[in-house]
Structure formats: structure tokens, C-alpha cells
Design a binder for these strands. Structure first.
Lengths: 119, 119
DNA sequence: TCCATACTTCAATAATCCTAGAATTATTGG
DNA sequence: CCAATAATTCTAGGATTATTGAAGTATGGA
């Protein structure tokens, strides 16, 4: 995942409505949700929903497909996973002991949260 | 970690200079880096660095301490870990099978990236 | 105390983002 | 083909953010 996409993903997630949309789409699963349903659930206008959906799509965090009259949006789990991975790698950078854990399949900074090594 | 802080953390990380600062501070470790050093390394003015550092501090991703004439900034590993955790929980929401993995101590969406279940 | 260093704050400008309404496009049913 | 539904695009505004240079604050040494 290149920096350009990381930046635009963070930008996409830094807006209340967009974060809520992503959460709803993650819960909705691969089936996704129609633009209209999203607008209604978020309590925003179709125009506004469309604006934010476009923004999210531009960042690669969600994708769309047409289904009859509706346009269905769904979360890109791959993009979300890549973003988490980026964050974990950056978070662990320069901390070989913790990075070692990651390579063993454990989690990284989450471990730090449990109260060891760092902090 | 409440939504307010999540949003401001993502906003903080969505700017090139700020993302670079966080990466540098993570690598620098608990010792941190002086504001002047950061400005120089990022190739921005002291004023501009100060602006971005303040923004990062406001989001809780970094913290500062004065040391003689310098002000030293360092990454908050806890905040970074919380952010990753938030992302993982949101990413796994509604996917019990994967969430199960998390509870067993494996990682979450990272697993999805290895090519199973989702996608 | 005076000066230099290390930063931050202020003020103004430029740039980007968000919202809202009107107009436009695509699809389906009568 | 026409009307209705489902969305998007366009345009204009107001609101935030980012950048810059000048001025201000804190610290330590001569």
C-alpha cells in the first residue's frame, strides 16, 4: 500500500459520516448496501451520501456495483486490512522485539497495550 | 477510545508532513525528537512544524516535554495501539469467525489478507 | 542584564473540504 | 415512449485547514 493511498484512506476515515458508512458496510458484509439505504441510515441527503461515498471509493476503502436501479456499495476488507497492516508496521518500526512478535503471528502494538516493553 | 478521538487521529494522520512526523517519532522511540530536529528532517519551517505538531498532540498521538531550551516530542504508542485496535474491531465487526481468531490472540483482518473466509 | 537559541503564537492568505439545491443520467415498469 | 425511481454531477456557499512571515515567550550562557 503506497503512501498516497494511506493518506487518502486516513482522510476518508476522518469524517464522521464516512466513518459511520464504513462501519455500516463492514457489518453489512459482501452483500453491501444501496446508496439510498446508506443515505437514509446516516440521516443525510442523497447528494451528501453520494459525495462521501465517492470520497470513500476514491480511497479504495469501498467499492460499488450496479444492481438494477440501485448502486450497491460494499467495504473492501483488503484495503482495510492493508491499512491496519501499514499502521502496525509503522507502529512497530524500530522496535525489533515487538516486530519479532508480529513475525511469530502475534499482534504488535496491541501487545504493547497489555503493558510491556514500551511505555 | 471514543469516536471523537478516532476521528481526530485519522485526520491527524491524513496529512503528509504529519504522517512523516509520526513515523519518525515512532522510530525515535521514547527519547523522542526536538521540534527543531523534526522541522529540519521534514524540510519545513519551524512555524509549519509547530502547527502540525500541535495538531498531532491535540489528537493524542504524540506528547511533548520541555528539555532545557528544546521541546521534545514523542509518539504515544498507547494511542497508536488504540487506533489499531479500533480499526481491527471495526474491520471484524459482524464477522464472528474472524473475531474468534482475535480472541484467541491471532490477528484479525490481517488473517483475511492471507486469503481466507472474506473477500 | 543582555543576547542568542528554540519554539510558539498571531494574522493574513491560499487551498481544500463539506453541504445544499437544481439539473442530469441510468434503469425499470406501464 | 413516458413517468417514476435511484443516484450522480454541477454550482455556489460557507467552513476548515495549511502555509508563510512577523512578532512574542521561555531558557540558558556571557
Amino acid at each position: 500500500m503506497d503512501e498516497r493511498q494511506v493518506l487518502s484512506s486516513f482522510a476518508a476515515l476522518s469524517q464522521e459520516t464516512r466513518l459511520a458508512i464504513v462501519r455500516a458496510l463492514v457489518v453489512a458484509g459482501p452483500e453491501g448496501l444501496a446508496a439510498g439505504v446508506i443515505a437514509e441510515r446516516m440521516g443525510v441527503s442523497a447528494t451528501n451520501a453520494s459525495f462521501h461515498l465517492k470520497e470513500l471509493e476514491r480511497s479504495g476503502l469501498i467499492s460499488q456495483r450496479r444492481e438494477s436501479r440501485s448502486i450497491i456499495y460494499s467495504a473492501s476488507y483488503e484495503a482495510l486490512a492493508d491499512l491496519i497492516k501499514f499502521l502496525m508496521e509503522d507502529c512497530c518500526a524500530g522496535h525489533p522485539a515487538i516486530r519479532g512478535n508480529v513475525e511469530r503471528g502475534d499482534d504488535c502494538c496491541i501487545a504493547a497495550d497489555k503493558g510491556d516493553v514500551i511505555a
